[in-house]
Amino acid sequence: MKVALDEKFAAFAEHWRPKIVAQANGQDIRLVKTKGVFPWHSHADAEETFLCWKGAFRIEFRERIVTLGPGEMLVVPRGVEHRTASDEEAEVLIFEPSEVVNTGDAVESEFTAPHGVTI
C-alpha cells in the first residue's frame, strides 16, 4: 500500500496524538505532530523507533539529549526513561508494537492517545 506521508500529516493538526498509518509484523507505524514537551515515561516491554520527517525533534534522557532533524532516527531501548520534545512543530514517525500505549508507564493524561486511531 502506497502512503503519501505529506498528505497524511496534512490531514490532522493536533499534537501528541499518534495516528496509525500502516501496520507490519505486529508493529504500528504511527504519525505524530509534536510541539512542546511530552511527559517522562518508559516502555518496559518494547523499543520505540522515532524517525523525524520534518522539523527538529528531541528525545531527552536523564543523562543526555538527542536532537533529530529530517531523515534522522533513534531507537529508545525498552525500559529506558525518556521524554520527547520540540520547540516548534515537528512531524515524526514512530515504529512500535501495536499494543504500546504512547505514554508508557506515565499516569494517563491529555497526552494519552486513544488506541487504534488510523489515518
Rank of each mutant, 00 (worst) to 15 (best):
I65Y: 02
F12D: 01
T84K: 09
V21L: 13
L93I: 15
V37R: 08
P39Q: 02
T67A: 05
I65T: 15
V66T: 13
G26W: 02
T118E: 11
A106N: 06
D87N: 15
Q23T: 14
D6N: 14
D105L: 01
A44Y: 02
E72F: 06
E99F: 14
V76N: 03
R83Q: 09
A4K: 12
A113Y: 03
E81R: 13
E110N: 14
I65F: 00
E7A: 08
E96G: 04
V92A: 08
V100K: 02
E108Q: 14
A90V: 07
D6Y: 02
S109W: 05
G116V: 04
K54G: 03
G71E: 05
H43D: 05
T84M: 12
I119L: 13
F9Y: 03
V80G: 09
F95M: 07
L5I: 10
T49D: 07
R62S: 15
V100T: 15
P70H: 05
E81F: 08
R62D: 14
D45W: 03
E47Y: 07
H115C: 00
N25A: 12
A113W: 03
E110D: 14
E81S: 12
L68W: 00
R30W: 03
I94L: 11
V3E: 09
G69Y: 11
F9G: 00
T84D: 10
P114C: 04
A24C: 10
E88L: 11
V107W: 08
D105S: 06
V37P: 00
V107C: 08
A90K: 00
F57P: 12
F12H: 01
P77G: 07
P97M: 06
E88W: 02
A106I: 10
F61M: 02
F9E: 00
E72D: 08
V92L: 06
R64F: 04
M73Y: 11
K8D: 03
T103C: 10
D87F: 04
I94K: 04
K33E: 02
I29K: 01
E63A: 10
D45I: 05
G55P: 07
E14M: 02
I119F: 10
N25W: 06
F61Y: 13
G69D: 06
S98F: 01
F57R: 07
F95E: 09
T118A: 13
A11G: 12
F111M: 07
F57Q: 07
